[in-house]
């Protein structure tokens, strides 16, 4: 276990209306065993004692699954490592004396609320538009009534692992939410239960995505590279197929 002295450059913005700016902090004696969020906890304790406003950042489960946390760290969504969320980034991956730049997700669809916190409610609205299978509680047939090939089920789960953190949008040069939307479309269409609504779903979700002000996908693949769950670009190709299919099939669109 070693200790680090670090220089932080943190985006500070009081609220939605504030213009925001970078503020520099020096912080000493950071254990390499801390997570980066624990490092921010330490910084905040210090700031509170000094009588200044602590840095606001989003976090909840701190075990990489709730999708709350998300900081653009040294030019990368969720920091320099692949396939982890911000809360799972440990300080041993930084060097003593290093400058760490912390920025919020940047996208029109994700307005900054305060410091490193952004508003991702657009994702909820996209799901509300069509990211579901329309079954009411009760009356579902026996779970084994429809066999699903193991392979399909596993592929559906691959897509369903999305945690909705928004790293895909943050990393995309077009601030596109295509990986997020495609992951849900692919998850549901890979299962027989999701097929009846496939046309309706893909239109509804894409329309909502455009309405929320996200860009479109130009296949740079940055989203998939930065996705903490490693959602593959396959899902975007699948969404496109779904869209073409739906455009040719659907009566009124």
């Amino acid at each position: 276990m070693a200790e680090l002295n670090l220089h932080l450059k943190v985006w500070r913005q009081k609220n939605k209306e504030d213009k925001g700016r970078f503020v520099d902090y020096d912080i000493q004696g950071i254990s390499t065993e801390m997570s980066i969020l624990e490092m921010l906890d330490v910084l905040n304790e210090k700031l509170i004692k000094e009588g200044t406003d602590p840095v606001a950042f989003e976090h909840d489960c701190r075990e990489g699954v709730c999708g709350c946390c998300g900081i653009f760290i040294n030019g990368r969504a969720h920091g320099p490592l692949k396939r982890i969320t911000t809360c799972q980034l440990y300080m041993r991956h930084f060097k003593d004396g290093e400058t760490i730049v912390l920025e919020p997700w940047r996208a029109k669809g994700f307005p900054v609320l305060k410091d490193l916190m952004v508003d991702r409610s657009a994702f909820d609205r996209i799901i509300a538009a069509g990211g579901f299978i329309a079954v009411n509680t009760g009356g579902a047939p026996d779970a084994n009534a429809v066999p699903i090939p193991k392979h399909n089920s596993e592929k559906a789960l691959d897509a369903a692992e999305c945690i909705g953190c928004g790293a895909c949008v943050a990393a995309c040069k077009n601030a596109s939410a295509m990986l997020f939307v495609s992951a849900k479309v692919a998850h549901l269409v890979r299962l027989p239960q999701g097929k009846p609504e496939r046309e309706k779903r893909v239109f509804a979700m894409l329309n909502q995505m455009e309405k929320e002000g996200f860009g479109s996908c130009t296949n740079t693949e940055a989203c998939s590279a930065e996705c903490p769950k490693g959602i593959s670009m396959d899902v975007i190709a699948e969404l496109r197929r779904e869209y073409f299919r739906a455009s040719l099939k659907q009566e009124n669109n």
Partner: peptide, 9 residues
């Protein structure tokens, strides 16, 4: 049953 119908893989 309910979860499978909802698409829980």
């Amino acid at each position: 049953d309910q979860c499978v119908a909802q698409g829980v893989p």
